[in-house]
C-alpha cells in the first residue's frame, strides 16, 4: 500500500474522532471541516509568511510544525468555546443545520479574503519531511495521542457523563451532571482535534484552499462515524481508515466508486444502526476468545 494513502487514512481517522466527540454526548455537530480548515489555514499562513519559522531551511523544522499545532489548537479552542456557548443551546437537527451554516460562512469568507489566497489558496507550504513516511509517523503519533485521550475520557467521569447525556439529557441533568459544560467540553475537544489535524494535512498536501472545508467534507467525516460506530472511539478510527481507503480500494470499479460510497452511507444505518464497532461487539469477542482458550469449569453458560 502507498504510504501517502496511509497518511490520508490516518487523517481520516482523526477527523472521524473529531465528529465522534460531540456525538458521544448526542450532539450532531457538523462543524469539524470548519475547524479543520482553520487549522490548515493557520499552518499555511504561518509557515509561508513567517520567515522566522524556517521556510528557507532545507527541511522545515518539526518544532515549527509543533508551534503551528499549538497555535491552531489555541485558536480553534477559543473559537469553539465562544461558538459552542451559542450553538449548543440548539439540539438535534437544529444544531446540525447551525454548524453547516458556520462551515459554509467560513468557506465563503476564506474564498473571498485576500490573505487566504482566495479561490486558489496558498501554495508551497514547506515540508518538514522528505517523504510520506515522516508524515505517516507524525500522523500516527497524533492519532495515538488522541485515541489515548479518548480512551481515558470514556473511562472517567466526564466521559461517562457524556454517554449519560446521550442516553437521556434530562435524567443526566437530574443526576447532577452539568450538561451544558459537558457538551461544551466535547465541542471544544472536537475543534482541537480538527484544528491540529488541519495543520498536519496542510503540510502533507503542500497547498491549502477553501474547498477543503466544505459541506462534502462534513458528509464524509460524518459517514466515518456513522459507519464505524459512535459508541466507542474505535468506531470512528475504523470508519475513517476504511472509508478513506474505500475509494482507492474501489479503483477497479472506476466511475462507480462514489456511487458505491453513497450506497455504503445509505445502507450502513439500515443494517448496522449502531455502526460496525460497538462495545457489545467486544464483549462478544472476548467471550468467544475466552471460551476457546480456556473453557470455564462450569462448562459454559447454561
Amino acid at each position: 500500500m502507498e504510504t501517502g494513502l496511509l497518511v490520508q487514512m490516518l487523517l481520516g481517522s482523526l477527523l472521524g474522532l473529531s465528529v465522534y466527540l460531540p456525538l458521544r454526548c448526542g450532539q450532531l455537530s457538523l462543524a469539524t471541516p470548519g475547524f479543520y480548515a482553520i487549522g490548515g489555514t493557520v499552518a499555511a499562513l504561518l509557515s509561508t509568511r513567517v520567515p522566522a519559522l524556517g521556510i528557507s531551511d532545507a527541511t522545515y523544522p518539526l518544532t515549527s510544525v509543533m508551534l503551528e499545532m499549538l497555535l491552531a489548537a489555541l485558536l480553534t479552542g477559543v473559537l469553539a468555546l465562544g461558538l459552542g456557548r451559542v450553538v449548543l443551546r440548539l439540539r438535534g437537527i437544529y444544531l446540525a443545520i447551525a454548524t453547516i451554516a458556520l462551515v459554509e460562512i467560513l468557506r465563503v469568507v476564506t474564498l473571498n479574503l485576500e490573505f487566504t489566497g482566495g479561490a486558489l489558496g496558498i501554495f508551497g507550504i514547506p515540508q518538514p519531511f522528505s517523504g510520506p513516511e515522516g508524515y505517516a509517523a507524525l500522523t500516527f503519533v497524533v492519532l495515538a495521542v488522541v485515541c489515548w485521550l479518548c480512551d481515558r475520557l470514556e473511562k472517567t467521569r466526564p466521559g461517562r457523563a457524556m454517554a449519560a447525556i446521550r442516553d437521556d439529557e434530562l435524567a443526566a441533568a437530574s443526576q447532577g451532571i452539568n450538561t451544558a459544560d459537558t457538551k461544551l467540553m466535547a465541542f471544544v475537544l472536537s475543534a482541537l482535534v480538527a484544528g491540529v489535524t488541519g495543520v498536519v494535512a496542510a503540510h502533507f498536501l503542500n497547498s491549502w484552499n477553501a474547498k477543503l472545508g466544505n459541506f462534502d467534507a462534513s458528509i464524509t467525516t460524518l459517514a466515518f462515524v456513522v459507519f464505524g460506530g459512535s459508541r466507542t472511539w474505535l468506531g470512528p478510527v475504523f470508519g475513517g481508515l476504511l472509508l478513506t481507503a474505500l475509494p482507492e480500494l474501489l479503483r477497479p470499479v472506476g466511475d462507480l466508486r462514489l456511487i458505491v460510497f453513497g450506497a455504503v452511507i445509505l445502507v450502513g444505518p439500515l443494517f448496522f444502526p449502531q455502526g460496525l464497532i460497538t462495545p457489545e461487539l467486544f464483549q462478544t469477542l472476548r467471550r468467544r476468545m475466552g471460551r476457546s482458550a480456556a473453557p470455564s469449569p462450569q462448562g459454559g453458560r447454561p
Binding site: 438535534g92 437537527i93 459517514a223 455504503v264 452511507i265 445509505l266 450502513g268 444505518p269
Partner: peptide, 30 residues
C-alpha cells in the same frame, strides 16, 4: 421507510438520505 418501520433515531435518516443524494448525483455524472 425502513428506518421509520424500525422506529430509529430520526438523525439516521439524515445520513441515509445523504447517501441517496450522493448516489443520485454520481449516477447523473456517470
Amino acid at each position: 421507510r425502513p428506518l421509520r418501520d424500525r422506529g430509529s433515531d430520526p438523525l439516521q435518516a439524515l445520513i441515509t438520505s445523504l447517501g441517496a443524494g450522493v448516489i443520485l448525483v454520481n449516477l447523473i455524472q456517470l
